[in-house]
Write a protein that binds this DNA or RNA. Structure first.
Lengths: 155, 155
DNA sequence: GATGCTCCCTCCCAAGGTGGGAGGGTCAAG
DNA sequence: CTTGACCCTCCCACCTTGGGAGGGAGCATC
């Protein structure tokens, strides 16, 4: 099976197949004499595993761990569950941050006329000095502080 | 005011101040003879505007537009509202995708013993051939397809 | 005036995943 | 043998942020 066929059979793009191999998530595929990668049916199963895990939002490093557990028939399901629950927690946090953003913005937008006049609570809200300047040493800036958490969100 | 002071006063990191200037989101700051950037109080107001908009998850290009509207006293509030509502829609979509992931994963995890035994519905679910292979030409793969939407999410 | 500390400068690198494309080889059908 | 579809390896871009190297500027203290 060539890379294109493996891609179609697994739902993982050709680009990603090569990338996953390059970062060591996948073992180096066998090659033909001319250098073409060759995949077997078992490989496709692993690819689908990865694909499914990506669809659930697992980051690649966690997928690597899950692949290991998948192959390890003596695994404890508790270990798998830990990964799953940690990821659920990650997702929950991201969702919470996004919801806070959305709700705050919706609140501002709700009071905006949305007509030809220039006065606008949204602009006023953005211009307001809501952020008192971080004291740099102590990470104050409580739960409502999206942006501290923000950079880490990178779905 | 030096860059460090402007940073503290606005809550925008020094790194980001320089970056925003480099991409043209901010006008080039005035400089001392020795090359230090100099900021005035009005500049800090704009920085706080940006900071607030980032906290609400606005991407920089939309912030650029919002800054323009902010400075334009003849703006129509409708235009601002459009940006806000578009961003709310973006947030809603991201939230929905993340929630789907979380719910699917939670469902799998709920049936996992989480003990020493190796059998695990989470692993089984990931290994299952849920993804039938994309026909590449037509983007089937319906609403539940997180990953199509996935790449675009980049909070 | 020399040392030292903090601040500033400009560049480069990293991250996460994914797609796009250049430039060139390979394979099978016609 | 030619053609078109496939494959190969590199490099680049996205987006935003932080980290750090290597070096200059400014101020205070000895």
């Amino acid at each position: 099976m060539n890379i294109g066929e493996a891609s179609k059979a697994s739902g993982v793009s050709v680009k990603m197949l090569r990338y996953y191999e390059s970062i060591g998530l996948l073992p180096r595929a066998q090659r033909t004499e001319s250098g073409y990668r060759v995949y077997r049916a078992e490989d496709v199963t692993a690819l689908r595993f990865i694909r499914n895990a990506r669809d659930l939002g697992f980051p690649l490093d966690r997928i690597e761990a899950l692949l290991g557990l998948w192959r390890d028939r003596t695994r404890a399901s508790a270990e798998v569950k830990l990964h799953a629950e940690a990821h659920v927690a990650d997702l929950d946090e991201k969702i919470a941050v996004l919801q806070q953003m959305r709700d705050a913005l919706r609140h501002l937008a709700a009071h905006c006329h949305g007509d030809d006049r220039p006065d606008c609570p949204i602009i006023d809200g953005l211009a307001g000095s809501a952020q008192p300047a971080p004291t740099s040493r102590s990470a104050r800036r409580p739960a409502s502080a999206a942006s501290a958490t923000y950079a880490r969100i990178g779905v």
